[in-house]
Design a binder for these strands. Structure first.
Lengths: 346, 346
DNA sequence: GTGAAAGCGCTAACAA
DNA sequence: TTGTTAGCGCTTTCAC
């Protein structure tokens, strides 16, 4: 059995394809009666339309491309819900691609999205350790008038792109202040893959915050480039072996948070008594992990909603001014951080 | 700036579009020299192809549609990785749609996928409480020669569809045996949304397993239709209030697992001492939850790989025989289940 | 209110 | 080896 086309419906009803098209698209210029007949016939024959043909003709696809850096990261689940939340009601769908932190793969997928004629792109650009990225491609895409909104990550020097991010530096400064107030002075930070914008920002925030608060920085406690995040275990083990554990460690993503917890358990490091942990990202399981994780929460769902809204504005209203939104994070307090002041009083 | 077309390249090089097309698609019938020139020009002009045009002409899209019942379920993350693992290397991409356990939404997305001309579909069909589903639509899709492979869920009475599932009944029987061996006789099961194939199967497995092992079934301990899964708390609270807790509860999905843990904490029910819990799905956090969760593990990544492989076989080799793969689950042992025999010995 | 005709960008059969 | 031509299914302008 073949797919039904607009022609089949026209033939069956002895009318012209253009009339069928008009009726099916709800355009005026077709009598109400005929319109109904056409719709019924379409239903009867199981007509479903042909995206390729429509898109070819109208050069718009009502779809937008979304790139994520790693689909397994729960971060994206809420983000995607936020995106879907805006898009679905406005009649858009999205194409999801997973770059896997790989510049080459990102490029392939970006090309694929353009081939598909997406009306716009929501992207979280990849930067590899050596600084390699697809900035030039992104510029080209922008040049052929496909709007792009970056979310989560950006190219800091490039001002021509719209973006929705979180104040990464401030998020760590907040964490530092929180820990400081609880009496912590020996604080470490465990960072994921070097080169990634968010991670670099969080490191900057750490250094800035330490200076601000007069916390002495110990290079040993700054663990860089923990990617894959399983490296966390080795680093923590080394610190323990050298009897050089800080009293608190700030994780810089949810994977490192989990790795820190499980590594601590394996190494018999008691949380929060021996080591306090500030997690990153507020996942549902944070609450039932032992101990429940105090963490930095990003407004992920909102990021998805705002980025989509901006993108749609560019697509539908040809909005030209570039907007850069920076959202604040907040700290969700649970039990993975000990109050050292209190302890001293005992 | 406009998108570059094959015509632009042809004009720039003073040759015909068909030659350009041949060169770009690596078909023979073009001299190596010309082919190189064409490719260079294409690169220079930033040519990216046009999916709509190609798809319209060739009536194949090199994309497959994937429907998931709820994108927020971590189950799908590994599944998708498995799918991507097979598809990417064979030059296919996928369109992801989230039906949200909603038959209407599933229908809209299914139509959208067909409109997009997907070469095949990987689906986990939705069934609502009242039995409503899109079986007829699925049959129609099959009739217009778009291959479908069901994964995770199937229509049990329909033999014409290919599928990759897990032995759901057996998974619960295994769990029951495990609990029985640890001395448990008062066992409950917490089930998610009624009507869903996997859930119904797991219930059947529970009843069958109890009979097999001579475990007395207490209807109070069979909690049905916990959807949304937050209902878990109320059910557990009621059981506690009536002083009618079983010694062990089997969860039937990862959300209920988490809800059971957090509800137990809120209700001051000690796990595993007062209540043992058999989780469903082996998520990374199971290890660091308190206590670490003993659970039924589905080979999720494999499901994705196998389903994709079967589908590609149907698409590329016109494979006609229907295959139904049923994979076994296994139990991952951790600390959420107490050994009552041992306890007695103390 | 309806139909005829052109064309979106590409591929493939057929010619040369 | 290369070019010409037709047409995939649809929308849209221009007739009537």
């Amino acid at each position: 059995m073949q797919k039904t086309t607009i022609k089949d419906i026209a033939k069956a009803l002895n009318i012209s394809p253009s009339t069928v098209s008009r009726a099916l698209n709800g355009k005026n210029g077709v009598s109400e009666k005929l319109s109904v007949t056409i719709r019924e016939k379409a239903e009867e024959l199981g007509y479903v339309g042909n995206f390729a043909a429509r898109s070819l003709k109208t050069s718009q696809s009502k779809t937008i491309g979304v790139t994520v850096s790693d689909i397994r990261n729960p971060f994206f689940l809420d983000f995607l819900k936020g995106v879907d939340n805006i898009l679905f009601q406005r009649g858009y769908k999205f194409l999801l691609t997973d770059s896997g932190e790989n510049v080459e793969k990102e490029k392939i997928y970006l090309m694929w999205l353009i081939e598909h004629g997406v009306d716009g792109i929501l992207a979280s650009p990849v930067t590899e350790r050596d600084g390699k990225n697809n900035l030039e491609l992104y510029k080209k895409i922008k040049n052929i008038s496909i709007p792009i909104v970056f979310y989560d990550r950006v190219f800091p020097e490039e001002s021509q792109f719209d973006s929705v991010t979180v104040d990464n530096k401030d998020s760590i400064i907040q964490a530092l202040k929180y820990l400081y107030n609880k009496g912590h002075r020996k604080i470490g930070i465990f960072l994921s893959k070097s080169g990634i914008y968010t991670i670099e920002q969080r490191l900057e925030g750490f250094i800035e915050g330490c200076e601000l608060l007069g916390i002495k920085i110990n290079e040993e406690w700054i663990a860089k480039d923990l990617f894959p995040e399983e490296k966390t275990y080795d680093k923590l083990k080394k610190l323990k072996k050298n009897h050089n554990l800080p009293t608190a460690i700030i994780a810089t993503n949810n994977k490192i948070t989990k790795q820190l917890i499980s590594a601590s358990k394996k190494l018999n490091i008691l949380i929060p008594n021996t080591l306090s942990i500030m997690g990153y990202d507020d996942l549902t399981e944070n609450e039932i992990i032992s101990p429940p994780i105090t963490c930095i929460k990003q407004p992920v769902f909102e990021i998805g909603r705002i980025a989509s809204t901006i993108l749609l504005g560019k697509i539908e209203n040809d909005e030209t001014k570039t907007t850069k939104i920076v959202l604040k994070t907040e700290i969700v307090e649970r039990n993975s951080i000990i109050n050292l002041n209190k302890n001293t009083l005992n």
